[in-house]
Design a protein around this nucleic acid. Structure first.
Length: 557
DNA sequence: TAACCATGCGCC
DNA sequence: AGGGCGCATGGTTA
């Protein structure tokens, strides 16, 4: 029996159109009735797939009403995937309002609301778009994989909405103490904290440039040059090679200035409330399918502030990350049995070294990363050549992806996500120009540079993108497993084990301490399930390192 | 003045 | 000749 799809569209005056694909008559509800309708179905024997334009907006509203849904189809997100999927006949996605669906951007992830004034999504009918998408998938030669991809994307969108809704537990007092220890007491807005001011003064003195502003690159470069320190840039990595007393305080200044700017007191004011850090997530926000973040910087929480992420009393954080996700995914998608054998154990790089493919673990890592990123020169380039002989299918796959990119051809992930066309991001040169003969040496060189850059991108795209697909399957399954853990009847999402962070290949679950072991078991089981979903019975492991901790900073990496 | 770019650093 | 992001700053241009 096929599943029931219930399509929801917005109507004027904050009402909602409900249209089921079981032949029943469509009808309208107000928001209170909608929450009750959804809750009623989620509690019933057949949980529908809820079809809507943007999960961030609909699920936030439902969560506020105490309703959690099991499955959905995010039309905006899935349309974006299908529009670039090489296996999809694009004419099947044309039709009424298609252009408006194409232009539809994500709801503001930091403040999702179902109804907003002057909304471009207003009156877009979910039924028509859903039918188009279903037809496009069904007609594709990769219908099964695409359907899995869309389901995973949509589940990811549910996770993202729940992450924002629940928030990461965050201790403002711990964070403020940490800032005070390093920077001094909170200064008035726009002035430097004491420790930063002292370091700036010290740098100025050591460079004989009183009043120097170390934040100004031209000022700093000029002052360094006057001291005979000629550097091409002022990156910490470059400065460290200099032998001069200013290096240490200058690097310390830069580090603390960065802490202040990105995760200082103003960040706390903006993003932490009621003991929760609520960031905006954008599922599928990057072209490879990885998530992006939208306010708050949830995907780049510096180690320095992680001590402030503390579980509630009697609760724990279960932190889990996958070891070497992308090399494992590469082994699986290429069917490289030698690399897959190395991916059976906990340490893929060490296993490569143990078989004699390379001398040391670090050589294995350097060579594999070089192959996935497109390193050509030096040590890394030489190792890539060696490893290509040992793992021809895996290294051949990324090499072929790079060649396709250099020819200007898009590539696809395991589940069928297509890369954006060449030149789309850079804007430097659109694809048509590549077919025209270059007018002069300069434009020839420019074309060449663009092709190579796109080749490095497509090389990485197939691996990073398939890695993102594995991770989506992982968190989608984990989300359901966590919900299925025993809890008191009617317990809300945040009264049970729930996800509070997802960072590409790592998750954090906030759980009552007594359930931490169950959570750990489910996190591992979900990883194994994701591997089977993508790679079937291929002999391939996705080992996790899992820590049960009170503070995020204690998690071993 | 606002919008944009370049730089540098953080995360994966 | 190393992939993907976000964010803040300073400095430039429209």
């Amino acid at each position: 029996m096929s599943e029931l799809r219930v399509r929801l569209s917005r109507l004027p005056a904050e009402r909602v159109a409900v249209s089921r694909d079981d032949g029943s008559e469509p009808f309208a509800l107000d928001l209170a009735e909608l929450a009750a309708y959804v809750a009623d179905h989620e509690g019933g024997p057949v949980r529908p797939r809820w079809v809507w334009d943007d999960t961030a907006r609909w699920h936030a509203l439902l969560l506020d009403a105490g309703v959690r849904v099991a499955r959905c189809h995010d039309l905006r997100l899935c349309r974006r995937v299908l529009r670039r999927a090489p296996a999809v006949d694009q004419t099947l996605l044309a039709g009424e309002d298609a252009a408006r669906w194409d232009r539809l951007g994500p709801a503001s992830a930091s403040e999702p609301a179902l109804f907003v004034a002057d909304d471009r999504a207003e009156h877009l009918a979910a039924d028509a778009e859903d039918e188009r998408q279903q037809r496009a998938v069904a007609a594709s030669a990769e219908a099964g994989r695409l359907a899995l991809l869309l389901a995973a994307e949509s589940s990811g969108a549910l996770v993202a909405a729940e992450l924002r809704w629940a928030g990461m537990p965050w201790r403002v007092d711990v964070h403020e103490q940490l800032l005070a220890e390093r920077l001094g007491p909170r200064p008035p807005r726009g002035t430097r904290p004491a420790r930063l001011a002292a370091l700036a003064a010290e740098v100025g003195e050591l460079l004989a440039a009183p009043g120097l502003n170390p934040d100004s690159r031209p000022e700093l470069m000029a002052a360094l040059r006057r001291q005979g320190l000629d550097v091409p840039d002022v990156r910490a990595w470059t400065l460290r090679r200099l032998d001069h007393p200013v290096v240490e305080p200058l690097i310390a200044y830069k580090q603390l200035a960065h802490l202040l700017a990105t995760n200082g007191w103003e960040w706390l004011d903006a993003w932490v409330r009621d003991g929760r850090f609520r960031a905006g997530y954008q599922p599928g926000g990057s072209s490879t399918g990885r998530w992006a973040s939208d306010g708050g910087g949830a995907l780049s929480l510096p180690a320095m502030v992680r001590p402030a992420a503390v579980a509630d009393d009697g609760w724990r954080l279960v932190v889990a990350d996958v070891a070497q996700l992308e090399p494992r995914v590469l082994a699986g998608m290429s069917g490289d049995t030698a690399l897959a054998r190395a991916a059976r154990g906990g340490d893929l790089y060490q296993a490569m070294a143990d078989t004699g493919a390379v001398e040391t673990r670090s050589d294995a890592k350097l060579g594999l990363l070089g192959a996935m990123y497109g390193a050509t020169s030096g040590e890394s380039g030489r190792l890539v050549a060696d490893l290509t002989r040992r793992y021809p299918r895996a290294f051949g796959l990324v090499e072929e992806a790079a060649r396709a990119g250099e020819r200007g051809q898009p590539v696809r992930t395991l589940l069928g996500r297509g890369s954006p066309p060449i030149g789309e991001e850079s804007g430097e040169l659109w694809a048509g120009d590549l077919d025209a003969p270059p007018a002069d040496d300069a434009s020839l060189a420019r074309q060449d540079r663009l092709r190579r850059a796109y080749g490095r991108f497509t090389r990485n795209f197939v691996v990073q993108g398939t890695g993102a697909e594995w991770a989506l399957c992982w968190i989608a399954d984990l989300r359901n497993r966590l919900w299925a853990l025993p809890s008191t009847p009617g317990a809300a999402l945040t009264e049970r084990p729930h996800l509070v962070a997802f960072l590409h290949d790592e998750v954090v679950v906030h759980t009552p301490a007594a359930l931490a072991e169950d959570v750990e078991r489910e996190v591992r089981a979900a990883a194994a399930a994701a591997g089977r979903l993508l790679f079937g019975d291929a002999p391939l492991d996705f080992p996790l390192s899992v820590s049960v901790v009170t503070s995020y900073a204690e998690a071993s990496k």
